[in-house]
């Protein structure tokens, strides 16, 4: 098992947001986490990646045999967890190229690998640029500064390609994208799939799942996974909305 989440609970301030999440992800799998607004989807992504705004109050998470929650945010990234942000942050004066070079070499150092020299880095960059169909001029500009919504998301996928994570978490990657941008981003993600890595797609709408086809779909509601199923579950949600899930949850 790559990732095992066991009874994970977390809060922000006094407010409990995750109230006992259980989830297992194997290498090669794609899991979709769906749910109405405010159900805790983004919180789950934040807690798994080590954002400090949230306090874990119970449960544990094992990632490739390691106690994930005891690791710093950067060490989780170095162990192979990648978050494609819903709102990628602007860093003025720092190009994506420079940003990636710093990140990649710190990850390599952690893993006891040699830093990539400029030539090797450039070669890797060119290869990944092609894979996710991103223009080099975008990568030389200040990171995310003045980028359109689509450019930001495509840049996230480019970074994912560069860092080759074991587990990628896509947080509402479809938000703010038109259908063409969505297709390009999804195609990029699909190309990066291998039997060795896994993906968690966090989304409100099912339309992204037309392009990134999940093996499992989980519905998050009020901080718990209230229903799990296959791809059909997503289609059901598309058709019927979330109300019946809410009703079912209330009945339990």
């Amino acid at each position: 098992m790559m990732l095992t989440i066991n009874n994970l609970q977390a809060r922000v301030g006094d407010k409990a947001i995750l109230r006992g999440i259980n989830l297992s992800v194997k290498a090669g799998e794609v899991h979709a986490i769906m749910g109405p607004n405010g159900s805790g989807k983004s919180t789950l992504a934040s807690v798994l990646t080590g954002r400090e705004d949230y306090e874990v109050t119970g449960g544990d998470v094992t990632f490739n045999g390691k106690d994930l929650l005891s690791l710093s945010a950067e060490d989780r990234a170095r162990e192979g967890i990648f978050l494609a942000f819903q709102y990628p942050v602007e860093i003025p004066g720092v190009s994506t190229v420079n940003f990636m070079k710093t990140a990649l070499n710190q990850i390599r150092e952690y893993r006891g690998e040699q830093a990539l020299d400029a030539v090797a880095f450039l070669a890797r960059m060119k290869e990944k640029m092609k894979l996710v169909e991103i223009d080099q001029s975008l990568l030389s500009r200040s990171l995310n500064e003045g980028f359109s919504g689509g450019e930001k998301k495509r840049n996230e996928i480019f970074q994912m390609a560069m860092l080759e994570p074991k587990l990628a978490i896509l947080d509402e990657t479809d938000s703010g994208l038109d259908i063409d941008a969505l297709r390009i981003v999804a195609t990029g993600v699909n190309k990066l799939r291998t039997p060795q890595n896994a993906t968690i797609v966090v989304t409100h709408y099912q339309r992204l799942l037309d392009y990134i086809v999940p093996d499992f779909v989980h519905v998050l509601y009020q901080g718990r996974i209230v229903k799990s199923g296959g791809r059909d579950l997503a289609l059901q949600l598309e058709e019927k909305g979330y109300d019946w899930i809410k009703a079912e949850a209330a009945a339990v």
């Binding site: 954002r51 710093s72 950067e74 990234a77 942050v89 710190q106 990850i107």
Partner: peptide, 12 residues
């Protein structure tokens, strides 16, 4: 959020 973004990419 800028610092977290960098940390999430593996930087201390």
């Amino acid at each position: 959020d800028q610092i977290f973004y960098c940390q999430q990419r593996g930087m201390d």
